[in-house]
Amino acid sequence: MELFLIISVVFVVLLNIPTTTKVTLLPDEKENSQITVFNESGTQVVDKPGDAVAVASQSARPTAPKAVDLEKITLQHASLFAIQPQKSETFLLYFENNGADLLSESKLLIDKIIATANDRSSPIINIIGHSDAAGSSEYNLALSLKRATAVANLLQSENIKDVEYRIDSYGENDPLVKSGKEIEPKNRRVEVEIW
């Protein structure tokens, strides 16, 4: 019993070894990348890729951003950088107004989608239906699911190895082009994302 108690105390002490947090903004193709690092003692904005801030504890303000040697960091964390999953590839398929019929130029993309999926091991294919904002949002949700399902049926007839499908519809909630309640052909789409 006493031994058990002593061990617990040691365990607690080990967990309390103080750590330091360091956050580095990495270069990315997205524009206007920005992070905020904050705690009880202050906030620091980092908006320049390659800048880092350090935080010693909850009671210490994050340090001012400082440029770091990205090459050195990449080497230091070589296995972490190498394990990053391959980026996804996205295809956009467009539809006739009010229906689930693919436009003919979009039909031509199906073969390319299949080839891309076959190039990856155990691909995940996200099929997401979207609509424009004309009509009620319930109607648009159902319509965009119908579009996603039509694409899923096309792809599922090809036997892609170890594939996993996810089918979803966002309706009018994630427009490609911001528009009012009017018809917008660019928003009548199915997004096929291959991981």
Binding site: T21, Q34, I35, N39
Partner: peptide, 19 residues
């Protein structure tokens, strides 16, 4: 989150180290 701080983001890629 880390034991020392919280990171909020906007369209971003970053590395976080705790040691």
């Amino acid at each position: 989150q880390t034991p020392e701080a919280t990171i909020g983001v906007r369209g971003t890629k970053f590395l976080v180290e705790v040691d």
